[in-house]
Amino acid sequence: MARFTPVHWAMMAFTAIPAPALADECVQEKAIYGDMDDAYELRFEPVGAEMAVSNKFKFAVRNTPVVADGVVMRSDDLLHANGMIMFNCPEGDVTGADLRACTVWQGMIYASDLTGNISALPAEGAGAAERLFLPALGPSIRESSMWGAGKATIALWDVLTLKGCSE
């Protein structure tokens, strides 16, 4: 009779119980993403009446009070999603210099399925992407006001994985 190690039992359990297709069950505006170190969370929210943006989100450094605001604006061809993460921006009328000073990261946000196929970030109402790729996000955070004692102290990978769906 074969002896199974705990790893064998775990592998058999995962193959016997199908994993839920979370992306198929969750729409993009309710998707919650995390990094592989569980140090960051990106949580999408419904846009509402803001017509200039196609998606918006909160970007939090876990186990700290740090929460940044994020927006996504589509290109004219709707094929590209330009994202921006801002931290401690002033309220009301702001100048371009004010906005540049509080911008932590800006760039294209790419979506990916589990097999690595890259696409544009889904719009509201569409199924959530399995993974997000935000190029150079980690280095941008290290150079921003989000980095330091009591804030972000773990270097972030540029890939975030779908972890859940808000109600």
Rank of each mutant, 00 (worst) to 15 (best):
G34W: 10
R100L: 08
G150V: 04
C26T: 01
L42N: 01
V159E: 10
I32L: 10
F14Q: 15
A129D: 06
M86S: 14
D93Q: 07
P139K: 06
D24C: 02
E143M: 12
M73V: 14
G96A: 13
E50N: 09
A129R: 09
W157F: 07
G125E: 14
A152N: 01
V27Y: 03
L22P: 01
G92H: 01
G138S: 08
V7Q: 09
L121P: 08
A128F: 07
T103G: 02
V27D: 08
R74K: 03
V47I: 12
G127A: 15
A152C: 10
V71M: 14
E45D: 15
Y33Q: 05
A128L: 01
I32Q: 06
V104A: 02
F57V: 03
L160A: 02
C165V: 03
D35E: 06
V7F: 05
A152F: 04
T103L: 01
T115H: 07
A149Y: 03
E130C: 10
V104T: 01
R62T: 10
S140F: 13
A49I: 11
V104W: 00
S54H: 04
T95A: 01
A19M: 08
F4S: 06
A23N: 14
E130G: 04
I154C: 04
A21K: 12
H8L: 04
L160M: 14
R62P: 12
F87R: 03
A68I: 06
E45T: 15
A152R: 02
Y33F: 15
A81R: 00
P135D: 11
F87C: 00
E29I: 06
G96P: 05
E91R: 09
K58E: 15
V47S: 03
A111I: 04
I118W: 13
T64C: 09
A123L: 14
C89L: 01
E167G: 09
D69N: 12
A10I: 07
G127E: 14
A68F: 07
C26Q: 11
Y40W: 12
A60Y: 02
M1G: 15
N117I: 14
L156D: 02
Y40V: 10
F4I: 00
A21M: 08
G48T: 04
M11C: 08
G83Y: 02
E143Q: 13
A19Q: 09
D35G: 10
P18R: 15
I109S: 04
G116K: 11
G92D: 04
G83H: 05
N82R: 07
L156A: 05
E25C: 09
Y110C: 06
L79I: 03
